[in-house]
Structures are given as C-alpha cells and as structure tokens.
Simulated scan of single mutants.
Amino acid sequence: MTASNPFTAPVTLTGPHARLEPLSPAHREALAEAADDGALWKLWYTSVPAPERMAAEIERRLGLRDAGSMNPFAVFDAQGRAAGMTTYMHIDAANRRVEIGSTWTRASCQRSALNTQCKLLLLQHAFETLDCIAVEFRTHRLNTQSRRAIERLGAQLDGILRSHLRMPDGTLRDTCVYSITAAEWPTVRNHLQWQLDKPRSA
C-alpha cells in the first residue's frame, strides 16, 4: 500500500450521521447485506456489486488503492450499520485533484442525512488536509437522483462527456462532470453544515 502518499493513506472520517472506515476484506459480509437492501445491483444506470461479487469488488478497489489511484471507504450509519461504499478516485496528487465517486448507499439510508454527512467529511478532508485545488463528481447523464444530490452539495456542472464509457449492458454512458473548487469550499462547507443542522421532515 502506498501509505507514503497522503491521498491514499488510511484515514477514518467520523461525523454525527456517518463513519467512513478504510475499506478491508473484513467488510465483505456487511456490505453484501447492504447492497441487498434495495437490490441496488439491478439498477441499469449505475454500477453496484451484487452480494456474491462483493469480495471481488473490495479486492478491485484495494488494488487501485495500492496502485495509488483510489482511496476506498466502507460507510456506516449512525447506528453502526454498513450503509455502502465511497472513494476518492482518479487521484491526481501532483495537481491536487480527486474525484469523489464509486459511491453507493443502501436503499433504507437514501434521502437521509448520511449522504450529506459523507460528502462533508470527504470534502473537508480533501480541502483542509490534502489541500486539494478541486474535487470532482461524475455521474450518468440520466441518473437524475445522483445529479440532484450532487447539485444540492453546491457543485457546478463543468460539462458532459458524450459517449464516455461503456456500461455493463453495452450501452454508452454520457458522463456529467461536476466540481467544487478550493475557492468555493468555505461557502459549500457552510451550506452543507446548514443542511445537516436544519430540522428534517419525518
């Protein structure tokens, strides 16, 4: 593992609504159960490992960590239940840029404070510890739920990469690229904290 690289060094990030732990093979069973909540692997517009593929997906992400291009996390909710996975990916340490992506969240934790908390923790670490100049988010053009969630963070749409990736079913994905810059971070941080602090409807 490239522990000398701060972008891939293991770190645990904790807030009132979520905890992000360095991904390990020990998380396989709990994450397989989380993916089964909502049968997330059946969604055509995203890529979530089926429960029986969880071990292979963990191994893939750890391989990318060892290669220096990803820092993967297992996500847990406030009760300590496995909620999903997220990563710093496409790490460009020389230019101090990362993408927050390869994220999925069990159905029963969606539309809760968990996602906002995760993004606040990841963005705070990226800008205030890793000294990033920009953080990217990418998603399928037709994944409207994901696009709205990214836009609620305060990220700006940089553009759309057309026919960017081939999906597992053979279709071509148009990829929406969003980013938050270091100059925007203080305002985004205040906005995300306000979202977490405001009363939430039941």
Results as ranks from 00 to 15, higher is better:
residue 152 R to W: 11
residue 10 P to S: 00
residue 6 P to T: 09
residue 33 E to Y: 02
residue 100 I to D: 00
residue 100 I to G: 01
residue 86 T to R: 08
residue 153 L to G: 05
residue 177 V to Y: 00
residue 184 E to G: 04
residue 154 G to Y: 07
residue 14 T to N: 02
residue 150 I to P: 01
residue 119 K to R: 10
residue 97 R to T: 06
residue 99 E to R: 07
residue 114 L to C: 04
residue 25 P to V: 15
residue 176 C to A: 14
residue 160 I to K: 04
residue 191 H to Y: 06
residue 148 R to L: 06
residue 181 T to I: 14
residue 75 V to W: 00
residue 7 F to E: 13
residue 191 H to K: 12
residue 138 R to G: 02
residue 3 A to W: 07
residue 102 S to W: 15
residue 137 F to D: 00
residue 103 T to K: 03
residue 10 P to K: 03
residue 127 F to Y: 04
residue 183 A to L: 15
residue 55 A to E: 04
residue 110 Q to M: 04
residue 168 P to D: 12
residue 79 Q to K: 05
residue 32 A to D: 12
residue 122 L to T: 09
residue 27 H to Q: 12
residue 192 L to R: 03
residue 102 S to V: 15
residue 38 G to C: 02
residue 198 K to T: 15
residue 84 G to Y: 08
residue 179 S to R: 14
residue 72 P to W: 12
residue 31 L to N: 04
residue 152 R to I: 12
residue 178 Y to N: 04
residue 165 L to T: 14
residue 111 R to P: 03
residue 56 A to W: 05
residue 105 T to V: 14
residue 98 V to A: 07
residue 165 L to S: 08
residue 54 M to G: 09
residue 98 V to C: 10
residue 18 A to P: 14
residue 37 D to S: 09
residue 137 F to M: 04
residue 198 K to P: 04
residue 195 Q to F: 05
residue 69 S to P: 08
residue 36 D to H: 11
residue 164 H to N: 10
residue 184 E to R: 10
residue 118 C to R: 03
residue 57 E to W: 15
residue 53 R to N: 11
residue 194 W to Q: 14
residue 137 F to S: 04
residue 180 I to V: 13
residue 87 T to W: 06
residue 20 L to Y: 03
residue 69 S to I: 08
residue 64 L to W: 13
residue 177 V to N: 01
residue 91 I to E: 11
residue 149 A to V: 10
residue 79 Q to A: 14
residue 130 L to T: 10
residue 75 V to Y: 00
residue 47 S to I: 15
